[in-house]
Design a protein around this nucleic acid. Structure first.
Lengths: 124, 124
DNA sequence: TATAACAGGCTACAACTGTAACCTTTAATT
DNA sequence: AATTAAAGGTTACAGTTGTAGCCTGTTATA
């Protein structure tokens, strides 16, 4: 029932906070994201959009609304990761990991071990 | 001089082809992307946008234009990977790799080895 | 009690994306 | 020669995203 929820980059910041702090109020979210420099309106717009996307729900038991995520960070990460790998690495996990290995400063031996593991992953 | 080139998902398909086949004509691109079902106009729009973004240039020596990439796949992959990891994994490469490992069917021992390597990567 | 700050709700607006039609000119095929 | 198929160029149009203002009512604080 949670098809096709696309979370934009800015919205993702709000989700991050809600995943760590479910049942947060707007003020709490705003405080947490103050480093972004976004206006109060912007935060409210992002939250509203997340609600209309069914990514976030409202708890209105108290006088001030509290917002909480309807989708898990785990699921979202998985979805984003898959679409990223498909788009950028043509669906190849091993190519991604190979690139990551090349970017970090592993010794030759470590890289070799990593590549061996990648080979195994690739088997599936 | 090649800062901030953002390539959208559809545009990425065109880039993929141009990276494999630089100096391609529109017809060649269209043929290559025929499986997408995009109309001729759509392909032309994507190419035009890539040109205006300075991601692609035109070679007009022959009567029919040929298009070629101005940015390397390597650089684009790096940029996309970085922004992806920042957005989704809070900048943590090791968290991403941990997730990848969990998703693939490694044995416990393999996973353990992989995690050891990740630990080493994390050191930097 | 007056005032400032915030909640909730509505509206806005430009850039970017996905997707495509239409027009004119040229080249190829019947 | 007539038709068809591009090529190149221009325009379009709706949905998403980044970013925010304005209005009204409430609450906390000077």
């Amino acid at each position: 029932m949670k098809h096709d929820i696309n979370i934009s980059e800015s919205e993702w910041c709000v989700m991050e906070y809600l995943w760590s702090n479910p049942m947060a109020t707007i003020t709490e979210i705003r405080k947490a994201l103050s480093s972004t420099g976004w206006s109060d309106s912007t935060i409210k717009t992002l939250v509203r959009r997340l609600v209309s996307k069914n990514a976030v729900a409202i708890n209105d038991e108290a006088s001030t609304f509290r917002y909480y995520p309807l989708i898990s960070q785990q699921k979202c990460r998985l979805k984003e990761t898959k679409s990223f790998i498909n788009r950028v690495y043509d669906g190849s996990v091993s190519m991604l990991v190979t690139n990551l290995a090349a970017e970090s400063n592993l010794t030759d031996k470590e890289t070799e071990e990593l590549l061996t593991l990648i080979e195994k992953m690739r088997k599936e």
